[in-house]
Amino acid sequence: MARDTNSTSTEFYRKKNKEEMKYQLVTFAAMIVFTLVSFGLVIGEFHPMFTIPVIILLACVQVAFQLYYFMHMNHKGHGLPALFLYSGVFVAILTILAMVTIVWW
């Protein structure tokens, strides 16, 4: 009986892992597309005031995909990792702002 339960749950998790792998592949395809669009915008020489915000936005989305799908932050039990990471991001933004505005002004 115990054996049966175990093999059923193994089967269940196998399927679940496979399901997740499908999402990972979609994520990967999306990341390739974002990269192509970014390079395309720069090669196509659009106006910098348009290109720069768009490629930065695309980079942020791509990184979010990486973090939430590839690094599993969409799974349960990632509250503390999110806290650690976003604290880091907060300090990172302050650091970059300070350096580009006042440090070497």
């Binding site: 503390l80 990792p81 650690f84 990471l85 880091g88 991001v89 300090v91 990172a92 650091t95 970059i96």
Partner: peptide
């Protein structure tokens, strides 16, 4: 993950 938070600041 705590270390990765620190790495974020380092690269920033």
């Amino acid at each position: 993950w705590f270390f990765l938070g620190g790495e974020t600041v380092l690269f920033a």
